[in-house]
Simulated scan of single mutants.
Amino acid sequence: MRWINKLSPKEILELHKYAVYDDTNGIDGIYRDRESNHINIDFSENWPYEDGTPSYIPTNYRYYDFDYEDCDTNGEPNNGAYRTWLAKRFGKEYINDMLRRKLGVDTEALKELERDECESN
């Protein structure tokens, strides 16, 4: 967990609202375990009553460096938006780390390709 642990609670809430569920009132708890590869977070999300009246309840998620898991519903995670937000926050270093760790891409080889292309132009 190199990246997700660098975020403040305020940033985690911003990330959640952007990538997961925009009608989130706040964070009820963040449980960080340095031994695991994720953090558990309880967000206060609006799960409205049938008549539309808001009902904010704790909803648990697991946040990893490159993905998140929704532990309480069957919703399909939007990891693209999640990764995009983190890439904007952390920049090129995050993207290179994701390519390396998540996809097995040799980012050093990509740098060599880029240099070769620049030299040929």
Rank of each mutant, 00 (worst) to 15 (best):
62 R>M: 07
49 Y>H: 15
67 D>E: 11
37 N>V: 03
64 Y>D: 03
66 F>S: 11
68 Y>K: 11
69 E>R: 02
46 N>T: 03
42 D>L: 14
58 P>H: 12
44 S>T: 09
65 D>T: 10
51 D>W: 03
55 S>R: 15
54 P>R: 03
37 N>A: 08
70 D>Y: 06
41 I>E: 05
70 D>I: 01
52 G>P: 07
37 N>M: 07
30 I>Y: 08
68 Y>W: 10
68 Y>H: 09
42 D>T: 07
31 Y>R: 11
34 R>H: 07
59 T>W: 13
35 E>K: 14
70 D>G: 00
38 H>D: 12
62 R>H: 13
58 P>R: 12
43 F>S: 12
33 D>G: 00
47 W>Y: 15
61 Y>E: 02
52 G>D: 05
49 Y>L: 12
43 F>N: 09
39 I>F: 02
63 Y>A: 07
35 E>S: 13
36 S>F: 03
38 H>F: 15
67 D>Q: 12
51 D>F: 02
59 T>V: 14
67 D>G: 02
64 Y>S: 04
65 D>M: 03
66 F>D: 10
60 N>W: 06
52 G>I: 09
37 N>E: 08
69 E>K: 02
61 Y>K: 09
42 D>M: 11
62 R>S: 13
35 E>Y: 09
34 R>Y: 06
48 P>W: 04
47 W>T: 13
36 S>Y: 03
52 G>F: 09
35 E>A: 14
45 E>R: 08
36 S>R: 12
30 I>N: 11
64 Y>K: 12
35 E>H: 10
52 G>L: 09
58 P>G: 11
53 T>A: 10
64 Y>T: 04
40 N>Q: 10
53 T>M: 02
46 N>C: 07
31 Y>M: 07
67 D>V: 08
38 H>E: 08
52 G>W: 01
59 T>P: 01
51 D>A: 08
70 D>K: 03
66 F>I: 06
48 P>G: 01
58 P>D: 10
47 W>H: 15
55 S>L: 12
57 I>L: 15
55 S>G: 14
65 D>A: 08
53 T>C: 00
57 I>Y: 09
50 E>I: 08
64 Y>L: 07
50 E>R: 13
54 P>E: 00
63 Y>I: 07
42 D>G: 09
39 I>V: 13
46 N>S: 07
48 P>H: 08
61 Y>M: 02
62 R>E: 14
31 Y>I: 10
38 H>Q: 10
34 R>C: 02
47 W>K: 14
59 T>Q: 13
38 H>A: 12
55 S>V: 00
62 R>P: 00
68 Y>A: 04
65 D>F: 10
49 Y>C: 01
31 Y>E: 11
37 N>L: 02
36 S>G: 00
69 E>F: 01
43 F>H: 15
31 Y>S: 13
30 I>A: 06
57 I>Q: 14
32 R>L: 05
33 D>W: 01
68 Y>L: 06
70 D>W: 00
40 N>R: 07
66 F>L: 10
53 T>H: 02
38 H>I: 02
70 D>H: 05
66 F>R: 11
32 R>P: 00
71 C>E: 11
36 S>I: 05
62 R>I: 00
32 R>C: 01
55 S>H: 15
47 W>V: 14
42 D>H: 12
31 Y>P: 00
34 R>Q: 08
56 Y>F: 15
33 D>A: 01
65 D>K: 10
49 Y>N: 14
70 D>Q: 03
41 I>Y: 08
57 I>A: 07
69 E>P: 01
58 P>M: 04
55 S>K: 15
61 Y>T: 05
60 N>C: 05
59 T>D: 06
